[in-house]
Design a protein around this nucleic acid. Structure first.
Lengths: 383, 383
DNA sequence: TTTTAACTTTCGTACGTACTATTAATTATA
DNA sequence: TATAATTAATAGTACGTACGAAAGTTAAAA
């Protein structure tokens, strides 16, 4: 009746109930128990296997078997395999790739992916975070809303931390939180966009960036840095910034105004992303300005759009779906570590931007490129 | 990664979810399973042991292993506000819009949206459906996998019905199920694509369609119907069909072969979607064929891509995000009616396709258009 | 026909071996 | 000193064998 494994099981259970085994305390290894109880490994595994099933123990492969913290499971939290992804705008041409990357990893590891959308609006961000806090989520991947300024919802992110729900931010982050992040080095990205044109001899370059998210303002910063580095003055009217609300009107209007003014036509344009480039190409076509003959233009993201037009875009590579995939990996890691001991802050990932040179840019003038080439090293990314 | 016992476990679980194994039905004995799966008894026991632990099976020593009756434990389901959306491929340029449309309605009505992805693969479709059946979902929006043929997972859709989980299919559907659907009238869409070119005097038109989904094969059908209607013979070598696997190679290669052959260059091309058009535009550019001067081309979807190129595409309008929004509306209605009385079959929605004429098509030859114009009425859509 | 006993099937317990996957600790290397 | 490579420890998977315990089946005996 009382089989060997039952005896062992009862012995361990007693230790837990007595308090001899505290939560998260390591048990003897299977091999030690074999000697301890004088039975086979199979029998030991049978005993601790059942105890693990019943929630008394948990096992970590490669590490050991531990006493479970039953005070938590008592709060009837059912097994929790939902991951939330918060986007600003689902259809934005980059984000579906990120979602796909994340989904492919998470579904492979038994998680379900629930999508939330803030439309880059603080109010909706708040609602979403409240749903997640109320609901049952193991972790959250967040593309922050209006990331260039502080969010009024910071306290909700702190609540996530208090509830032990791991989260990480992608593409951008709120400085105040110092969260785990997965981002491009956007400042460097903006820098190499501008540097590329500068090295090709351009001196009159227009910058058009969306500045209500962190990406855009960092890219603009990189643009300015490149000019400063190469000692090229910036005409302030060459900097056009816009935001989410006026994204479909302002860039086009401003560029039209600039081109139709009696100022000299710029020789190069640097854009917030490829999508914007394609809109602006129409503006140029209407004025019979050919790319790259009359004007060079640099995009950002290396999206599918960059090879779609008659002129293939020189652009900065964005690791889209890879980013989603690795975000998912990182998050799952964070979820696992949460249960363990004090092993906390997971390292953030910063991708180095990379320029893809296609046919939308060309050399102009006869500047002394020799002097420029190799004279300066790229000053960013040395941290 | 997927160990032997996991495979067996999954196989048995599938049988239960399909209904092949009814509650209290006896399973094969351990010894039979050993032969059945070609593994050791230990492995079989590991599989059925875990399933018993998880409540799928129960065992009676000396008698056998039986399928558990889960209907009882299930009745205490917590309130349920999750909606699943099953896509074939998240990044496909149309689907993010559909998701956005659905998400905007569902989040407004207190539902959370969980995204699943099949990669147009039956196996993954099966896994996803099993997760949904096991999990806690109020309804499902499905873009069917490989919709032009019957799915091997039909029984799982029937299980959805048995579990009273409303679902509807979007873009396409499996004929066998007669589900509630939200689709475009793709046959008519293909018809008006072809009709447009025919009315512009084209007689030598190439059709390039993806035919492993229902949309493509219906559009092709419409293409053929238009030719028959206007008594125009079809050169069979003008019909190029491809599928999900070879979508990035076959269409381009086939068109190149056709253009480089010594046959007369066709005057028009009708495409499965806008994305394909843009790929093919590169092929034409390489051969100095200008659109629409030398060749007219018609797309499908009226996607953002249609206004991106130097030539703006004539294309068929696809109500993308509206479709997602109305799918969500319909599904929520179905969920509400489910509890109510016998008010059952919700009406499906079929959108009428609409041609957007831009600048990628032009009139050719001097055919007697007068004779054609108005002589025929559009023959489809009168049902 | 009923009862009993023997036999068979089935799951349960228990031993052993071997290899893999993951983690942690150690050592070597820069 | 910090990093990389190696090694050791630990749980996971998988094969095998053997016998016990409970249930079901069959056949003989009352």
């Amino acid at each position: 009746m009382t089989s060997k494994y039952q005896v062992i099981k009862q012995a361990i259970k007693s230790k837990i109930l007595e308090g001899t085994l505290a939560p998260h305390q390591k048990l003897s290894s299977e091999n030690d128990m074999i000697k301890e109880y004088g039975v086979s490994r199979h029998t030991v595994r049978l005993a601790i296997g059942e105890l693990a099933n019943e929630g008394w123990l948990y096992k970590v492969q490669g590490s050991g078997t531990y006493c479970a913290d039953r005070s938590k499971t008592k709060s009837l939290r059912q097994p929790n395999n939902n991951i939330a992804i918060i986007t600003t705008y689902i259809s934005e041409y980059i984000f579906p790739s990120i979602i796909r990357g994340a989904e492919s990893y998470l579904s492979k590891h038994g998680y379900n992916v629930t999508i939330f959308n803030t439309n880059n609006d603080y109010n909706q961000e708040k609602q979403v975070l409240e749903i997640i806090l109320t609901g049952n989520y193991a972790g959250v991947i967040i593309e922050p809303t209006k990331s260039s300024s502080a969010s009024p919802n910071l306290h909700l992110y702190l609540s996530l931390e208090r509830e032990m729900i791991p989260y990480l931010m992608i593409n951008a982050f709120y400085h105040e939180l110092e969260p785990t992040t997965i981002v491009l080095d956007d400042e460097k990205g903006g820098f190499i966009q501008a540097e590329h044109l500068i090295k090709l001899g351009h001196r009159d370059i227009v910058a058009i960036f969306k500045t209500d998210d962190m990406q855009g303002s960092k890219r603009l910063k990189g643009f300015i840095k490149a000019h400063r580095m190469y000692d090229i003055p910036i005409n302030t009217s060459n900097i056009i910034s816009y935001n989410t609300q006026n994204r479909y009107s302002k860039p086009v209007e401003k560029l039209e105004a600039l081109l139709d003014s009696n100022m000299q036509t710029p020789t190069g344009i640097v854009c917030y992303n490829d999508q914007l480039v394609l809109e602006l190409l129409d503006v140029l076509r209407k004025r019979d300005l050919q790319v790259p003959r009359d004007i060079s233009i640099v995009g950002y993201d290396d999206s599918s759009l960059s090879e779609v037009s008659e002129v293939k875009l020189t652009t900065v590579k964005h690791p889209k779906s890879k980013m989603g995939y690795e975000a998912a990996q990182l998050l799952v890691e964070m979820i696992k570590n949460r249960n363990g001991s004090g092993k906390k802050s997971t390292e953030s990932i910063v991708y180095e931007p990379e320029l893809f040179i296609r046919t939308s840019t060309k050399r102009v003038g006869k500047f002394q490129e020799e002097l420029l080439e190799g004279k300066f090293e790229s000053p960013i990314g040395s941290k």
